[in-house]
């Protein structure tokens, strides 16, 4: 196996409630070049797992290996695309994209050539010398993806990368991400709370249970040649995932709103056909 996650446990200390376990005994295996999504209600620890793989946090128990190497700290072989673009506002688009390349001791000329190519692929050829504050939200996220991809990472970690974008931009970026994934065959680890997004993009979907976060179910989707899962099977899969998730969502809502919350009266399925999962 390419990426293995073994027996991961992680707790955070909370001022009032003491130690809170966010991840409990997570075991996961990912093949090289696979597109894996994790869905789950907010606060289930899915982002924490991503931070652990990135090496930005340390697990209390368990180990993460990539190609047999143990993950101990952050490194350029596991680049993260965050929910907010995180572009450095004091650097131009070009300098943002070459930031990591220059750290890899790649000559400046070569780095700029690579960055230019990647930016063209992301349709940003005209904005190479712009500053981030001159770009729209979708463009900034594109630059952030370009900055990550240009590093040619072993694993691309994406932490709800499209959550802050509008629907149209998101749709376009979905297509582009699939294109890039097919071209580069990079292993993608994708965190989202949007079931449709997960089903649309990934080969393997992992549903997280909450408090403590653990793997509740795993689904695999079949793909068409164009990289997208066909409509009839996505709908079926979405329904299955939602059923699994329902219990978790109820748990979160009960905790937030008190025990008088009743799932039956506030039925989640009412608008499920057009707004699936985006409200969890």
């Amino acid at each position: 196996m390419y990426l293995t996650i073994e027996g991961i446990e992680k707790s955070f200390s909370h001022q009032e409630k003491g130690q809170i376990k966010v991840l409990d005994n997570i075991n996961l295996e990912v093949e090289k070049g696979q597109f894996v999504s994790i869905v789950g209600p907010s606060g289930c620890g899915k982002s924490t797992l991503l931070y652990l793989i990135a090496g930005l946090e340390h697990a209390d128990k368990g180990e993460i290996h990539i190609e047999g190497k143990k993950v101990t700290s952050a490194g350029p072989d596991r680049v993260v695309v965050f929910q907010d673009d995180g572009l450095f506002p004091w650097l131009t688009v070009m300098d943002n994209v070459t930031y990591g390349l220059l750290l890899k001791k790649i000559p400046k000329k070569e780095a700029e050539l690579k960055a230019r190519e990647m930016l063209k692929m992301m349709h940003l050829g005209n904005y190479i010398d712009s500053y981030p504050h001159q770009l729209s939200g979708g463009m900034k996220q594109r630059v952030a993806i370009a900055r990550a991809l240009v590093m040619e990472p072993e694993v691309l970690l994406m932490d709800e990368p499209f959550a802050a974008l509008d629907e149209q931009t998101r749709m376009v970026l979905h297509k582009e991400l699939i294109e890039i994934w097919k071209k580069t065959k990079v292993t993608i680890f994708f965190i989202t709370h949007n079931i449709r997004e997960a089903v649309l993009l990934s080969e393997k979907i992992i549903v997280f249970a909450t408090r403590p976060g653990k793997i509740k179910a795993t689904f695999t989707s079949t793909r068409m040649k164009d990289g997208f899962t066909p409509n009839d099977s996505t709908l079926f899969l979405e329904k299955q995932i939602l059923e699994v998730l329902q219990e978790e969502i109820e748990k979160v809502l009960k905790e937030e709103m008190g025990d008088d919350y009743n799932f039956k009266t506030d039925n989640l399925h009412r608008d499920s056909s057009d707004n699936l999962g985006s409200h969890i």
């Binding site: 090496g55 930005l56 993260v80 965050f82 995180g86 450095f88 930031y99 750290l103 590093m151």
Partner: peptide, 27 residues
């Protein structure tokens, strides 16, 4: 925190981190 995380995952550390992230970010 976001800028720091971005820089770390791209491989920055030590004085490079100080010079390219901490300092310009506080300008």
């Amino acid at each position: 925190r976001l800028y720091q995380n971005v820089a770390k995952t791209l491989g920055s550390s030590g004085t490079h981190f100080l010079r390219t992230v901490i300092f310009p970010s506080s300008v």
